[in-house]
Design a protein around this nucleic acid. Structure first.
Length: 991
RNA sequence: GCGCCGGUAGCUCAGCUGGUUAGAGCACACGCCUGAUAAGCGUGAGGUCGGCGGUUCGAGUCCGCCCCGGCGCACCA
């Protein structure tokens, strides 16, 4: 028997392939990437798609600092998946990566290495050179890290925001905005980071919890105007003398350091206010506050004998004046509609120098703007302090307030002010409160509001250009139109960014730093006049294009007069023009990439607007928004057609990745340890629109899916060792029905996967593929057609038909996996028999489309196979029980008898009764009649198929030693007495 | 405080416009095979579909309220 087996073993066509089962990604991936570099795969792809319809994903520049960690790595991987998919679809889809190279983080790092501040003997140019070197170092580092993910692109020629050409384009965008009237220079309160010593934009703020003193302060009422209702109310009382003597407005604030800048108290016209008498520390006092807040305040401050003397409307306070409690200036009560009765006292401390709403109120009421804080967040000193506080020169600091404040940091000033207020009796109550407060995103220091003169992009400006803005809409309105015309993935992105645009203030684009692109404005030293014209812009753009933005900082070689066009220089003859010191918000630079890259790069300039921007969803506030603003203002359209966002990566506990927590690792380290393809597979397998947990353990767990796909392919490829599509492929009409069925399923798979990827739902696509590999291929198709592939004669029509299907399925699987498993699929490609004209790399191949070649969807066939496999499951259930009872072993040792209603049996029989045994992996299937078999011995009812009864019995026939089946005709062949008829014929006289 | 998204088997998730016993993969248990073999196949157990109430002949699926998690906006004086 054993000899017989050995005799025939060699005639069985077992799968053969060198495609390894073990992926060994750690060593194979780098080798493959090296190969791609040597063959210049990216260039080959570009050449192959030259002239095709463009589809461009424009890269958002990561910041050239630190490691590329898992989050940035995921971003690059998702981009690469999209680009590879579009490329395979036949689009010309170049990928030009970029880096954001200017800005505070680098400047900070460089300064920190220098001891915190710029050494006095170091020139700005020298400092900038250090920043430049620093940036370049990280570009090289990150480039290698990104490349380790298998991402293809124009890595050797990325775009950098420090390139002179890029810088010139940023200035060009600014010049265009200026020409169109969007730019203004104005004194306004801006978010100011005293730690970074610079203004900040909305996108540079992070809200963090912090504790601040909450103080209730008495502002003594001094004068009341002639027409003042409140005055009449008090005057009408017999105890008016006593009231006037100790009367105060009660205000509330959580920023005591802004009290020196107080110039008014704002009340609500409509609210009810009260005049209250109370006792505190045994003293009787009077105050005014909102009625609704009295009880809370009285309780907090533990006031005694509280008596409401009068109730009146807020409007009655018109004309009331008070004396600043320590600066003794005369200040008015004003009205503002933002005064609410939720917190505080209903009387709002108003400091136009330190608050946006206060500033607006101040503007309306013509209040002075007081801002005694310098750029480092400290009170000015000496006469400067007096001047900024707008005190009269005669003011004598007899109580020591100015002395106390001089040079104090705002936060340190808080307790000092509170203490002195208490000492002097102005403080009614204080406590600490926890609230969230804006912080500088880089230094994490709390931000303050500070009035300064800055450059702004006016969001409500109406562009006069009729061609671009025919309806005369504001930029804000046009931005909202552009947002609506853009497709957002996921869809809620549209609401999110619309809400931001609807509410956002003008964009403060100036920063008071060194490492950036200068705002090209000049100032007349003698008069303070600011000079910024079309001509000066043009000249500076040109010079920066030629020499880089250093011209602005190089006073030796590039004094102001050399940067000025001759006619402007002539106009100001006799006066001194100097370069102003502001640079651009880095967001302005990154936001100009649509111009500097998409509209200028030789390879991309005809492809604007980009088809896609793809970044983390925090970029709604950041890059997407600034890019939209700048593009819509200067070109009239959104710079992107699709906007896809992904969420942050988190650790297993759902916490954001951060270096300090140690839950982040460089992406190249992960690729080395786990395999880039496995990481890519992991990212593609889940919904990246909600937070993505990333740990080694989770990614390793995804290896199960990866291995299944790999092994399924290996099985297909292994059965194609003697298959040459050109010679052996079977025409569609000659395909066996099982093969037609799998190809029909494959076609449906293509449709589903393509639709999912088109919506950028990679996890849906991958799930479809995994499911297909697990169920359709591994458990159903391959398991069934093994017999044909192994045991039929090599060149038999049945076997060639199966091989044709395996080949087609393997081919489309490999292609559909290519965008995700960039290395593995390319490796698979090498083991796949090629048709004439197939490219050398899968990345040069095209995406499969349904209806290609032999495939077409046959729903009728699918329905019948569905039923067949469903019934097979019923037989398996019975078979399994019998196995556990020790009655049978493998399926081929059994005969299955099915009893059912005639229509069900007819449906089953329609695929061919003789085929059912094959599909069931048993030696025989007999179709009976339910009416007779239902109650008969040995039959049991099916669980999931109504009206079906199943009986499984061991077969009495001999097993063929070659194919193990018991077909009843074993021994019929004289030359092969141990074989069944089929095998005897297949073997012939070969052995 | 306002808004958005999510809460379905131990884990990761599917469940479209409401319709028969809620699915898949992994993990687990039990078997088979040893001709995909550091593979393959089969069977099984496991879920009050976050909670409560409502609409409906019928709800995981629609509505309301609540709880939990994530995020965004406003955070004000």
């Amino acid at each position: 028997m054993t000899d017989e087996k050995n005799r025939y073993k060699q005639t069985v066509l077992l799968p053969r392939t060198d495609f390894p089962m073990k992926a060994d990604l750690a060593t194979r991936e780098p080798a493959r990437r090296k190969k791609w570099e040597e063959m210049k795969l990216y260039d080959l792809i570009r050449a192959a798609r030259k002239g095709a319809k463009p589809w461009v994903l424009h890269d958002g520049p990561p910041y050239a600092n630190g490691d590329a960690h898992t989050g940035t790595g995921m971003n690059k991987i998702l981009k690469d998946i999209v680009v590879k998919f579009r490329t395979m679809q036949g689009f010309d889809s170049p990928y030009v990566p970029g880096w954001d190279c200017h800005g505070l983080p680098i400047e900070h790092k460089v300064l920190a290495d220098l001891g915190g501040v710029k050494p006095p003997n170091m020139t700005v140019l020298e400092l900038r050179q250090r920043c430049l070197d620093y940036a370049h170092g990280f570009i090289d580092k990150q480039r290698n890290q990104f490349k380790s993910t298998g991402t293809l692109g124009r890595w050797e020629r990325p775009y950098l925001t420090i390139d002179p050409a890029y810088e010139a384009n940023v200035l060009q965008v600014f010049a265009s905005l200026h020409e169109r009237g969007y730019i203004t220079r104005a004194k306004r309160p801006v978010h100011w980071s005293w730690a970074a010593q610079s203004a900040l934009a909305e996108a540079e703020l992070e809200y963090e919890d912090r504790q601040d003193p909450s103080v209730y302060v008495r502002f003594p009422v001094s004068t009341c105007g002639k027409e003042c209702k409140f005055r009449e109310i008090v005057e009408a009382r017999p105890d008016r003398e006593e009231i006037w003597g100790t009367l105060a407005l009660l205000i509330w604030t959580t920023t005591p350091w802004t009290l020196p800048a107080n110039v008014a108290v704002a009340a609500s016209q409509g609210a009810e206010y009260v005049l209250v008498r109370y006792e505190r520390d045994g003293k009787r006092e009077h105050m005014v506050l909102a009625q609704a807040l009295l009880s809370r305040v009285a309780e907090k401050a533990k006031l005694q004998n509280v008596n409401v003397l009068e109730v009146f409307s807020g409007a009655d306070l018109k004309g009331v004046g008070y004396s600043h409690p320590f600066l003794e200036t005369a200040c008015p009560v004003v009205f503002a509609d933002y005064v609410t009765l939720e917190d505080g006292t209903g009387l709002v401390h108003t400091a136009p120098g330190h608050g946006k709403e206060d500033f607006e109120t101040g503007k309306r009421e013509k209040l002075p703007v007081v801002c005694p804080i310098d750029e480092a967040g400290k009170f000015f000193t000496g006469d400067r302090l007096k001047k900024e506080l707008q005190l009269s020169p005669a003011f004598e600091d007899t109580r020591g307030w100015l002395k106390m404040l001089e040079g104090q940091n705002v936060l340190k000033a808080n307790p000092l002010i509170v203490n002195k207020l208490r000492e002097e009796g102005w403080l009614l109550h204080t406590e600490n409160i926890q609230h969230s407060y804006p912080h500088c995103w880089r230094t994490h220091a709390p931000v303050i509001f500070r009035v300064t003169e800055q450059w702004f992009v006016q969001i409500d400006h109406v562009d006069p250009d009729k061609a671009m803005n025919p309806q005369g809409k504001t930029l804000r309105a046009r931005l909202l139109d552009a947002i609506h015309a853009t497709k957002w993935f996921p869809a809620w992105g549209e609401n999110r960014i619309s809400a931001m645009i609807e509410n956002r203030p003008d964009w403060c684009v100036s920063r008071q730093r060194y490492w950036g692109i200068p705002i090209p404005a000049f100032r007349v030293k003698e008069t303070g006049e600011v000079v910024l014209t079309r001509e000066t812009n043009k000249r500076v753009v040109e010079l920066v294009r030629q020499h880089g933005s250093n011209v602005w900082f190089d006073d030796v070689n590039w004094p102001a007069e050399k940067l000025l066009p001759p006619e402007v220089a002539a106009k100001y003859k006799g006066k001194t023009l100097e370069k102003m010191g502001d640079i651009f918000d880095v967001w302005f630079e990154a936001g100009s990439s649509f111009q500097a890259v998409m509209r200028e790069d030789a390879e991309l300039k005809d492809k604007f607007p980009a088809n896609m921007y793809l970044e983390g969803d925090d970029q709604h506030r950041g890059w997407f928004q600034v890019s939209l603003i700048l593009s819509v203002a200067t070109t009239g359209v959104s710079p992107f057609k699709h906007c896809l966002t992904c969420a942050f990566v988190v650790d297993e506990k759902g916490e954001k990745g951060s270096k300090s927590k140690g839950n982040m690792w460089p992406i190249d380290q992960g690729c080395k340890d786990l395999g880039a393809d496995l990481i890519r597979y992991y990212f593609a397998s889940l919904d990246t629109s909600s937070p993505v947990p990333v740990t080694y353990k989770l990614i390793q767990a995804a290896g199960d899916g990866y291995r299944k796909v790999r092994n399924t392919f290996r099985a297909l490829a292994g059965n194609l060792f003697d298959f040459d599509p050109a010679r052996h492929a079977v025409t569609p009409d000659k395909l066996q029905q099982l093969d037609r069925w799998v190809l029909s399923r494959a076609d449906a798979l293509i449709a589903a996967v393509t639709a999912a990827v088109d919506r950028y739902e990679f996890h849906v696509a991958l799930r479809e593929i995994t499911q297909f590999c697990n169920v359709t291929l591994s458990a159903q198709y391959i398991d069934v057609c093994k017999d044909v592939l192994y045991c039929e004669a090599a060149d038999s029509p049945k076997r060639r038909s199966a091989q044709t299907a395996c080949w087609a399925v393997a081919g489309l699987l490999v292609r559909m996996l290519a965008p995700v498993l960039v290395h593995t699929s390319d490796e698979m490609w090498e083991f796949l028999p090629k048709a004439p004209g197939d490219p050398q790399s899968v990345h040069l191949a095209s995406w499969p489309s349904s209806g290609d070649g032999q495939r077409h969807i046959d729903l009728d066939l699918e329905r019948r196979f569905d039923l067949t496999f469903k019934v097979k499951a019923e037989a398996d259930r019975v078979l399994d029980r019998m196995r556990k009872e020790g009655k049978v072993g493998k399926g081929y040792d059994t005969i299955v008898t099915l009893g059912a209603k005639p229509d069900l049996l007819a449906e089953l029989a329609s695929l061919g009764v003789e085929r059912l045994a094959e599909y069931f992996n048993v030696s025989g299937v007999i179709l009976g009649d339910a009416m007779h078999h239902a109650a008969a011995e040995g039959y049991e009812p099916a669980v999931d198929v109504q009206g079906l009864f199943v009986k499984v019995v061991p077969s009495a026939d001999r097993a063929c030693v070659r194919c193990y089946r018991r077909t009843g005709d074993v021994g019929n062949s004289a030359s092969h007495p141990e074989l069944c008829g089929r095998c005897a014929a297949a073997v012939g006289d070969s052995v």
